[in-house]
Nucleic acid binder design. Sequence first.
DNA 1: ATATTGAGTTCACAATTTGTTAATATGAAG
DNA 2: CTTCATATTAACAAATTGTGAACTCAATAT
Lengths: 225, 225
Amino acid sequence: MNAKGKILIADDEPDIVEIIRYNLNKEGYEIVTANNGDDAIQKAKLSQPDLIILDIMMPRKNGVEVCEILRAQPAFKDTVIVFLTALSDESSHVKGLETGADDYISKPVSPKILVSRIHAIFRRINKEPEEKVIKIDNLEIDPVKFEAKVDSKAVVLAKKEFELLYLLASKPGRVFLRNEILNQIWGNDVIVGDRTIDVHIRKIRQKLGIDCITTVKGVGYKFTM
Amino acid sequence: MNAKGKILIADDEPDIVEIIRYNLNKEGYEIVTANNGDDAIQKAKLSQPDLIILDIMMPRKNGVEVCEILRAQPAFKDTVIVFLTALSDESSHVKGLETGADDYISKPVSPKILVSRIHAIFRRINKEPEEKVIKIDNLEIDPVKFEAKVDSKAVVLAKKEFELLYLLASKPGRVFLRNEILNQIWGNDVIVGDRTIDVHIRKIRQKLGIDCITTVKGVGYKFTM
DNA sequence: ATATTGAGTTCACAATTTGTTAATATGAAG
DNA sequence: CTTCATATTAACAAATTGTGAACTCAATAT
């Protein structure tokens, strides 16, 4: 079977590694394993996985350290990193998310949950391989250059503003619920107030100078030209 | 709003139940509650929820026991069961996953996280009730864009108006009783006067400019072209 | 290291829209 | 011509979004 994606599993407990390896392999993923921090870093560099599952508690650099080191390298800027945490490990978990992990999975691992989470992550990854320029009328949005143009004149948008605009413009006309927007731009578990979206919307409207975002009261926002 | 799914919440702490109930109800889920294990089992059988949220520590059968009992029945083989665990509750948690729970949520509950998890679960289990465009003659209703068109000319409808029109148009010719309409659009437990429906109907007629909703005196309304 | 900058967020409150009700009119059926 | 259910209208209440200012925090420059 053609591999759906490459996953690096790093944990010092062989049993855990084996459970995860078995279940994910069964699902068609290509698996690489490591049993300590240094090993994880080396294997990561060698095999360039799409996803890295890191145990927090590991000998020779713990998961958080590994994550920090990898994240500092351009090659791993976009690699999805998921932590394995023991439930007692709350503080590490918080730390983990701060460090740039994309998700966490609690031990003991339920194979069912594990597999569905991993699937979800890959769905998310694969969904946006097509970072392409959006052109609608006199508006142009280039996600690669991270730049928007109105009448060929560049408009400087902040990151969140840009992401928000790109999201809305990616499906013109379609209404995005506030919740959808939060999930897409901020992530599932990030908590921000409701007014925050409005403020960003306002800034986009302000900066672009054209009326391309329509409010659908009680529902959300949509891009319209 | 049309109920997105039915959720049973079982916890002996009324405050917790209320928080969860409030937040999920706001999101359009239909909520049933129970405050002990036996109650939970009975309510589950009666209301056949799509998802069950079980507190682990409950009087008269704890969450794990309830889960085991339900799982033993064919009717609940595929029902999603989620545990509520206090952080201190580790051993129970482990037991829970072994028993066949699909996920767990830690107390104290953060409403935002709760909601996004529940959404995620429903996305996973839902066969996506296919929100699709309705086209009848020169009328077009697009629930994704949240937009209605008459002769290709957009008509701006408010949320309730749109929902009502979409409901009626989803089954042309069929008469919807006033009670049905109330349940579908407002929800079972919301109380609004009878005139409210009339007013919305009137606005729809007014805005669309075409006569597509027929009054069936003493019964309800139906969509006709 | 410290200062500076600006993105991102939040807050209080204004502005606006939507939803509901109450009062009255209309119109068909008996 | 009464009755009953719905239609209409305007006034009111509730919900939602827009706005300006302040604040936090991290990245960047000094």
